[in-house]
Nucleic acid binder design. Structure first.
Lengths: 239, 239
DNA sequence: CTAACTTGCCTGTCTATACAAGTGAAATGG
DNA sequence: CCATTTCACTTGTATAGACAGGCAAGTTAG
């Protein structure tokens, strides 16, 4: 019997609430969040749990903590927040990012020029790939190709990703949660295809990211390649 | 009275030990680290403390954790590990990275084109800047300019950074520890000066990083600009 | 021999508590 | 009025223990 853990951890619940309040402007940049002890009372949790929520906000760069002072809300990012682990869509305020699906999910082979080594199990299972272009304020900012192992993903190729994020789809329908990963970054010249996708000229400098995501499912990794136009927007992230 | 905290936290001590053992090959890639309970006994600490050490190793991408299995050692990075918070020198095995000082620490003004807003206090204090070129296997991989506020840094301009890292110098002589930060990344064409530093041609695609570091000292921030040649080495980091 | 079950080990989550140490404002004393 | 001390509040570090849930190997029943 598969016992999917549909209960989200409490620290994540608090993280979500606080993040909403920061992104909605309830807590303004420069403000100090309620102290850890106050949050303990408010959410009826103990301090280690609250601290775990706050440390996730630090990871995202939404707050910084100062000993003897508190948790200070940071100014929202002006660039593209895809350096950290959150899904792309959740890195932007609602409505600012638009997505165009170039290639719907298709079953096929793994690409030959993967930036990461993949295990034989995954290679044999084959690969589901899709590609999208994301735009910010009507300028194409990045072109993304995602590769997932074709294991236990019933009806995946028929799903739509227009409005939903891939991360949420994986979580909701397949109980797959991203737990971590690695990335590689380099600068390169745009080739013909990428230039077309990002509305640039061939040879323009673009930024390439290769990502490997680990999940709660043992040995289930998936991959994404991104090409970014950074003429107007930096990539941003916390250290 | 200044009471400098010269005792390092225990979780950091364990982190350092484990990291040494991983980088020295005592624990090989694919190996499972001793379980948390075993580490508790070995270092005579409790599990939350051990877990904090391990979570730092996860941040660095040195291990990943798998529920029901353990902490699995990852393959060492083949690229440049400057996306995370560690100092540049500590991101490389000893002896692989060479540093050439282009401009020794000099007191002057802040640059006019800073990627981050700086507070008035810092601006008025003036700025100490230095620049270095770092090479990996005889190829120049990045050119780095560092900017520090000129506050309480006696004899700083006379110090040498040839062999020591800036992070260690700040920690040892001034008790300044880096606690976090932000970064911005973009792709651009090399200008004349950068091309000369990195032995490239003008117009070649290079990667630019702007970093803002926060420290344990209240309101003491410092900054670094990096230009990277990613022709041969990716930038790598954990998510 | 194979499939189902049991068991032990492992990490993930959470509680309850304690003390150390940094910060800033209020109280105090000259 | 100003400098110093005190104090309340904050986060940082650490202990001790509990229960859940994933994983793999060994055991047992068919």
């Amino acid at each position: 019997m598969e016992t999917t853990s549909l209960t989200i951890p409490r620290y994540r619940h608090v993280y979500n609430r606080l993040r909403e309040k920061i992104q909605d402007g309830v807590y303004q940049p420069g403000d100090v969040l309620p102290s850890e002890n106050v949050l303990c009372e408010r959410y009826e949790l103990t301090r280690p749990t609250i601290r775990q929520s706050l440390s996730e906000l630090v990871k995202d760069g939404l707050i910084i903590k100062q000993k003897g002072v508190g948790s200070i809300v940071q100014k929202p990012k002006t660039g593209i927040g895809i350096l950290n682990i959150r899904s792309t869509t959740s890195s932007f305020p609602k409505g600012t990012l638009s997505t165009r699906v170039i290639e719907s999910p298709t079953v096929g082979e793994w690409p030959s020029d993967m930036a990461f080594d993949i295990e034989d199990d995954l290679r044999e299972a084959g690969c589901v790939s899709l590609s999208r272009v994301r735009s910010l304020h009507d300028t194409a900012v990045f072109y993304e190709r995602t590769y997932l192992p074709n294991i236990n993903l019933p009806r995946f190729t028929q799903r739509k990703f227009e409005d939903k994020s891939l991360f949420k789809t994986l979580a909701k329908h397949y109980d797959i949660h991203v737990t971590g990963g690695k990335q590689k970054i380099r600068a390169m010249k745009a080739d013909a295809h990428t230039a077309q996708m990002l509305l640039l000229h061939v040879g323009d400098p673009i930024l390439q990211l290769e990502k490997e995501y680990t999940t709660n499912r043992n040995k289930y990794l998936f991959y994404a390649s991104l090409w970014c136009n950074t003429d107007n927007y930096y990539l941003e992230g916390a250290l």
